[in-house]
């Protein structure tokens, strides 16, 4: 029993170490990678533009629901005028970075893990190495750098659409005065909250994309399956692990910043 526990602990610690080395190696390789900007732009397009619809839809409905729920809670205390503050603080400080990250993991992260897994299976990654091209620099580094840009931008968009959704349900459906809603937003949100929001978004982006890339890149290490099943298992692991790590990181960052 103790032997098994020790072995599992060692395996997890080694996994974290391997993941840290993978991420570090990717950033280091970025320094020597040629035509990096072009590939970063392409990755921003994949993580940004292609994921735009899902961010807009989820952001809008999150704002709509927050507006409704917030109104019924505040109404009990006769404080409907604070609806804008409630929606904006909920979105900026917590919901937008987390939900945007989860949506991006579902769309861009899973696609990245599957793509790298297939490239590993079909020896495309080995082919790069035989050409003297760093696979970390060519395949992973642009995605990591793009995540530092795309995730904060998507989060900002999520906040904007969510605020508008809150205003829609508060003002249009429930009769809160629009000016009151937006002035409450303006008063409640401070620059510190926005900084915290962007810090979280960048951290989640980096974590999510590096975890997804790590699992896809090492799809051949799967012991329980090979071929297409190994890619599917790697993609599942990538999504589950990155979602968990985003929530853990959210707690850690919030506990330091609150």
């Amino acid at each position: 029993m103790l032997h098994l526990l020790g072995r599992q602990t060692l395996r997890i610690v080694m996994g974290f170490g391997d993941f840290a080395l993978f991420t570090g190696r990717s950033f280091r390789a970025a320094a020597h990678s040629r035509r990096l900007i072009r590939r970063v732009c392409r990755a921003i397009y994949e993580q940004g533009t292609l994921c735009l619809p899902v961010i807009l839809i989820v952001g809008l409905f999150t704002g709509l629901v927050l507006g409704l729920q917030g109104y019924y809670v505040l109404n009990r205390f006769g404080s409907e005028g604070l609806l804008g503050a409630l929606v904006s603080l909920c979105l900026v400080r917590e919901m937008a970075p987390v939900l945007a990250a989860l949506m991006l993991i579902g769309q861009a992260g899973s696609a990245l893990a599957a793509e790298l897994g297939i490239q590993r299976n079909s020896e495309q990654i080995v082919a790069l190495e035989t050409m003297g091209v760093s696979s970390h620099g060519y395949l992973v580094a642009p995605r990591l750098l793009a995540a530092l840009v795309a995730f904060p931008l998507q989060t900002a968009l999520f906040v904007a659409v969510g605020l508008w959704g809150g205003s829609l349900s508060g003002s249009l459906l429930l009769g809160v005065e629009s000016g009151l809603y937006w002035s409450s937003v303006e008063e409640a949100v401070r620059s510190r909250d926005v900084r915290e929001c962007f810090l979280k978004a960048a951290t989640f982006g980096l974590l999510a994309i590096s975890i997804c890339a790590y699992h896809g890149f090492h799809a051949d290490r799967c012991r329980s399956a090979t071929g297409a099943r190994a890619v599917s298992a790697a993609t599942t692991r990538a999504v589950v692990h990155s979602c968990i790590m985003v929530l853990v990181a959210d707690y850690v960052i919030t506990s330091f910043l609150v």
């Binding site: 040629r34 050409m131 003297g132 091209v133």
Partner: peptide, 19 residues
């Protein structure tokens, strides 16, 4: 081991672009 997301020309150009 050809890159299936790149065209034939891009596949051939890849090692030159990167090395």
């Amino acid at each position: 081991a050809l890159f299936d997301s790149l065209t034939a020309l891009e596949n051939v150009a890849l090692p030159l672009e990167q090395t």
